[in-house]
Nucleic acid binder design. Structure first.
Lengths: 335, 335
DNA sequence: GTGAAAGCGCTAACAA
DNA sequence: TTGTTAGCGCTTTCAC
């Protein structure tokens, strides 16, 4: 890498002159500025990032910790975060916690050595289950800002970006009820997660309000580690009268659709299905799955905006929670 | 952040003593070492990353540039890279080129200012189409190592990790022929890519060798931007006698299976299908799709190993190309 | 056994 | 208009 010193030597001026010239300082003569800038361009000079960071105490880098890149939601969030960060002149150091508390702790710990200006993260499953949040509050105490998204924790005081998980599944359930469905089952792969609980509660709430006829709510927990397909098949065996399915995770809605069709259900005549999936699964479904759209791009963008805002005015103490709207998009699997 | 200076002041010793003590230097008395280390631990001292990098001219950070995180293959590769890098004490700065040459250029350019020790990348589609590789050779000339994977370029001299794309689809086609299939169609969403061309050639080669009966090869190009499903439907319309499909991308094999079943084909009795997909789509298929497995985890791991090797002995000039084995995994869509 | 000083590449206050 | 100096946080050589 070319350094200021090298430029200075070649031009027989001092390092500070070169530095100022490159910044178009008023102090420096037009002539010198030109000579310096020409040589800099010619030698493809780039200011050393580490020196800049050391001096300014800013890295222009954000740490992103997500539970799982193979989950389409997080991949898309990462994509959105990367887009927005790049736009704002920030780089991303990405870590995958793999749903593990230990990995989350070490990532946070290791990157808090001046590697990043702040963190964007969604909490690992294990962390949520154990409700062990000290590693996050520790970072906050060091005055390194954190923005949580999607999987957040009530008792951590920081900026957050969430969707209205409760409201989204409440609305979806309402819709199924309004179709006249009498036997609506909720399928969840994510019961352990904050968002899973909220979505389940939305479903239950809609039932409570459903005074006309009293179907008991039915919640099917699918263990990710076990066979999703087997659980879904089992659902149809145990609940032959099912006429509505609300899937609150990425994949089980699609699987339910396939199994239902295979079993001879007419969709949406006999059975409605609503999923929490992204559009990426639509190519695999026919009829097209009706979904709750989470506007993941907006979520990612908002996290970066909040974090950079916070970085620019660290003094403020009030934290904001931004709720990104969801949409119930009715396609071919609802009436 | 706590600094050496602060520790030194609190302990009334010099900064260099503290530094040495933290490194368990022989020069320093046991007593001092203990006092220093205790205080360091107590105050949660961490050496400033930027200062370390500036001093050592090493960042312990790798730049990863992938075309698209939403593509499961690249997400998985990123996952593998992250795992291995973490294991080896490296961080990742991740950029998504979005298949754009311009983004790829700027990422490479911006990160070559001392932000990373080297790059791992897979070439953007636009870059491959325009065969414009100067931005990469420029980096190499600056003595920053680059490891290319999957989508590589012949004429760039650097370490590479690939799969035997040609051989993989050659074998798959051979398998279909050995099943006695007489009308085998290749479906490609990725004709523009190096890997797409190789895979297509493997298919064509198998046909050339197929002297017994002469079915002309049929290659269907699916334009990603258009409707994959429509193209597949069209395939069945135009080729009603099709009895074998080789899909050389992530998704079209799954779509083909769904459409075939819907059209009344018996799979695998009437029709065999082989895809290049990862296991993640299997949950959406019934029967289970037979696939060519790319061992993406191994690919990611290999890229990191090669890059770190290169970093540790920069002198070596010979570059290696590592080929990761593929497997044809026969499941429910082949006889 | 400990400390002073130099230097990594840069910026900025101050001096000339 | 240009140069000198100090300092960001750290390591390391050399002196004491």
């Amino acid at each position: 890498m070319v350094t200021l010193k090298q430029l200075a030597e070649q031009l027989n001026v001092s390092v500070s002159t070169v530095s100022k010239a490159l910044h178009n300082s008023e102090e420096i003569s037009k002539d010198t500025i030109q000579r310096v800038q020409e040589l800099a361009k010619h030698l493809d000079y780039q200011p050393n990032r580490m020196a800049l960071s050391l001096k300014s105490n800013k890295t222009k880098t954000l740490g992103v910790i997500i539970p799982n890149v193979l989950n389409h939601f997080f991949a898309k969030a990462l994509y959105a975060i990367e887009m927005e960060a790049t736009k704002q002149g920030y780089n991303l150091i990405t870590c995958v916690s793999n749903e593990l508390l230990s990995k989350e702790m070490s990532s946070l710990q290791l990157l808090s050595n001046g590697s990043v200006d702040g963190f964007i993260m969604s909490i690992a499953e294990e962390t949520q289950v154990k409700n062990s949040m000290d590693h996050i509050t520790t970072i906050l105490k060091k005055d390194i800002p954190v923005v949580l998204f999607d999987r957040v924790a009530e008792d951590i005081e920081c900026d957050k970006v969430i969707i209205d998980d409760f409201g989204a599944s409440y609305e979806a359930t309402k819709h199924l009820l309004s179709e006249g469905r009498k036997y609506i089952v909720l399928v969840s792969e994510i019961e352990e997660l904050s968002v899973g609980k909220l979505r389940t509660n939305g479903y239950l709430k809609a039932f409570e309000e459903n005074i006309d006829y009293k179907q008991p709510p039915i919640v099917i927990h699918v263990n990710k580690d076990n066979d999703v397909e087997a659980s879904i098949k089992n659902l149809f065996m145990s609940n032959p009268k099912v006429d509505g399915i609300l899937s609150i995770d990425n994949t089980s809605g699609v699987v339910a659709l396939h199994k239902a069709l295979k079993k001879g259900f007419k969709v949406p005549e006999d059975l409605s299905i609503i999923g929490f999936s992204d559009e990426n699964v639509l190519v695999f479904t026919d009829p097209k799955l009706s979904t709750i759209s989470q506007h993941t791009m907006d979520i990612g963008k908002a996290t970066v905006e909040l974090l950079i805002d916070r970085l620019n005015k660290k003094n403020t103490t009030t934290h904001v929670t931004k709720t990104i709207k969801t949409n119930l998009i009715l396609r071919g699997t609802t009436k």
